[in-house]
Measured scan of single mutants.
Amino acid sequence: MTYRVRIENADGEVVTIEISADELREKGLTLEELLPPNARIVEVEEVEP
């Protein structure tokens, strides 16, 4: 499974990243732990691999 994640950074700019569930598991991280300081998740969407 892959996630498309929209993130708002500290400057108010919204960027989109895609990350797979396998990648998260391998790194032992959650989506929140990948965020840079002062950023927030705006939207998470599951996409087909």
Rank of each mutant, 00 (worst) to 15 (best):
V5F: 04
E13I: 13
G28H: 09
Y3F: 10
E43Q: 11
Y3N: 00
I7Y: 15
E13H: 11
N38Q: 06
G28T: 03
L24K: 01
V15M: 13
N9A: 09
T16L: 10
I41A: 02
E18D: 11
M1T: 13
E45T: 14
R6Y: 09
E43Y: 12
S20C: 04
E8A: 08
D11W: 08
N38P: 06
E18L: 15
E13Y: 12
L29P: 03
E46N: 06
G28S: 06
L34W: 15
D11V: 09
D11H: 09
I7T: 03
S20Y: 07
A21K: 09
E45L: 14
E26V: 10
L34K: 03
V42T: 04
I7H: 02
T2H: 14
E45C: 15
V15S: 14
E23H: 08
P37M: 07
G12M: 04
I19N: 00
V15F: 15
E13K: 12
E18K: 05
V14C: 02
V14M: 13
T30A: 07
E8G: 02
M1S: 08
T16V: 12
I41E: 01
L24V: 06
A10E: 14
R25S: 10
I17V: 09
P49R: 10
E8I: 13
I7M: 08
R6E: 04
V5S: 00
V14N: 07
V14D: 04
M1E: 03
G28M: 06
E45Q: 12
R4N: 03
R4V: 07
E43C: 12
A10I: 12
D22S: 12
Y3P: 00
E26S: 10
T30G: 04
E33G: 07
E43G: 11
E8K: 06
I19K: 00
N38C: 06
V14Q: 11
V47P: 02
V5M: 05
L35M: 07
D11P: 05
I19M: 02
L24S: 01
I7G: 01
V5P: 00
A39Q: 05
E43P: 01
V42W: 06
A21C: 05
R25F: 10
A10N: 09
E43R: 06
S20W: 05
V14S: 08
S20A: 10
